[in-house]
Structures are given as structure tokens and as C-alpha cells.
Amino acid sequence: MAIINITAPATREQLANINIGDTVLLSGTIYTARDAAHKRLMSMIASGDPLPINIKNACIYYTGPCPEKPGDIIGSCGPTTSSRMDSYAPTLMDLGQTIMVGKGLRSKDVIDAMVRNGAVYLAATGGAGALLASCVKAKRTVAFPELLSEAIYELEIANMPLICAIDSRGTSLYEEGIKTYKK
């Protein structure tokens, strides 16, 4: 259970040594995207249009932030349930995405795509939106502003506290953790 500093975007090689249970302090440039934005990205891919984000080695954070108060960078921005992105995530990983940040279980297809592409799934604490907002240093709207909180934002983050829930070998802390504490 190491503490590892990672800067996004990150290559599969840079993520290879992360194991489940490791604390990852994530910094760098990441994108937000949830249900509606993923759906739009998929139709752009299907029609061969260029994506509004650089997907190579990218980190996508599944979140839909609250509007920021005047003077603030971002509103509350905790993770949303990742499994709703399961049908989209393998396509994005096959195009180069290497980090997913969210909360909750993932499908076998997602885990297979992670192993295939050397990607990691990092869990943010569900409900800790105010705390996670304090890790965001800058925010810029990249695509789909009409989707409001579901738009794609580019965030500059510093030391976001995450736990590796599924590593690039496909091992899952959700399974291992429950086995340890089940009575």
C-alpha cells in the first residue's frame, strides 16, 4: 500500500507499478465527462469526427460539478457512479485513455480493456465533493457547454487523494477488500 505521485496525462509504463490499495496523489491535467458527454464522444467516434479532447494517455474523471460561486474555481465535484460509463470506457481506452477516476464497480469488459491497454481505475471518495474541489487549481470548458454540469471540462489538479481500486493487471480491491472483512 504505497503512496504514489502521478501526473496526468500518463503513459501505461508510468502506471504499471500501481497496485490495488495504493494511494495515488494525482496531479496534472484531466478531463471531466459523465453520461451525456460520453454518449456524444461515442457518436463522434462512430461518424469519424475528431474528438474535442486529446485522448492519448488521458485521464477522465467521472464527475458533474456544481456551479462555482463567484471567486471560486469549481463547485463541489466528487465522483459519480462509474458503471454507467462501462459501455463507453473500453472504446476510449482502446483509443489511448489510461486513467479513469470514479467510484464503484466496473464490468468485465472494462477490466479486460484495462488489461489490454495498461490502464488503471482510481477511486475517489463518493460524497467528498467539497474536499475534492479543493484539489482543483484551474478549470476550462472544452466541449458541450450546453450540457451544463455534464459538459467536458479540463481541470488542472494537485494531489487529488485517490485509491487504486482496479490496477492494470485487472486485480480489483472491491473483490479483495470485501473478502477480508466479510464476517
Binding site: 463541489s76 467539497a130 479543493s134
Partner: peptide, 13 residues
């Protein structure tokens, strides 16, 4: 933090 900053504790309000 949420109480101090009068910020929603969770973004899913």
C-alpha cells in the same frame, strides 16, 4: 469544509 465554505457536501445536490 462544506459547512465552512457554504458549499454543497456532494455535487449531486
Amino acid at each position: 469544509i462544506s459547512r465552512e465554505k457554504q458549499m454543497p457536501a456532494c455535487q449531486d445536490t
